[in-house]
C-alpha cells in the first residue's frame, strides 16, 4: 500500500552504483542500443522488480556485461536473451513468454473486453423493448423532440 518507491531496491543497490554505467558501454552504438533494449526487458534477480538496465545491483552489472559480450560475439538478440533465460529461468523475462502457463494472462484481457461488449449489448437489447402501445413518433415529432432534448442539455 505504501507507494514510496524503491526502499528495498536502494538498500540493495547502495553498496555499488547506479544503473547502466558509462564504462560498460560498447563502442558500436547500434550494438549498444540493442544491449540496452535487451537489458531493459530483463528483470534483476536481486532487487526483483527492476530491469537490470535500471538496477544498481552488482549482479545486474554482471548480466549487462554478459549480454554485451554475447552481442559482440555475434549473438542475435534472441540468442543473448535465451542465454540468460537458460541460466536463470523464464523468471528474468519482464515480458512473460506466451505459452500454456500464460495463455490466461495474455488472452484474458482481450477476451474480457469482448465479453464485456457482448454482455453490454445483450443488456442494452433487453432494455430497448418499447412498450407495445407506444405508437412510433412521426418524423415531425422526432425532430421536435430532438430539439427539446438539445435545449435541455444546453
Amino acid at each position: 500500500m505504501r507507494t514510496w518507491f524503491l526502499c528495498a531496491l536502494l538498500l540493495m543497490a547502495s553498496l555499488s552504483a547506479h544503473a547502466v554505467e558509462p564504462r560498460e558501454r560498447l563502442a558500436d552504438p547500434a550494438l549498444e542500443a540493442r544491449a540496452r533494449t535487451i537489458s531493459s526487458e530483463l528483470r534483476c534477480l536481486v532487487c526483483q522488480n527492476e530491469s537490470i538496465d535500471e538496477s544498481g545491483a552488482d549482479l545486474a552489472h554482471d548480466i549487462r556485461m554478459f549480454v554485451r559480450e554475447r552481442l559482440t560475439a555475434g549473438d542475435t538478440d534472441a540468442q543473448a536473451m535465451q542465454a540468460i533465460v537458460s541460466r536463470y529461468g523464464a523468471f528474468v523475462l519482464l515480458k512473460p513468454p506466451v505459452e500454456r502457463a500464460t495463455y490466461v494472462l495474455w488472452y484474458a484481457p482481450p477476451a474480457l473486453v469482448l465479453l464485456g461488449l457482448i454482455g453490454t449489448v445483450i443488456w442494452l437489447r433487453r432494455r430497448q423493448v418499447v412498450p407495445a402501445d407506444a405508437a412510433p413518433l412521426s418524423p415531425e415529432e422526432t425532430r421536435r423532440l430532438d430539439g427539446l432534448l438539445r435545449e435541455n442539455d444546453g
Binding site: V46, D58, L59, D62, F66, Y88
Partner: peptide
Amino acid sequence: QDGRVGLNFGVYG
C-alpha cells in the same frame, strides 16, 4: 573473481 562461473550456474546471491 569476475563471477562468470556463478553467472553460468545461475547464481543470484
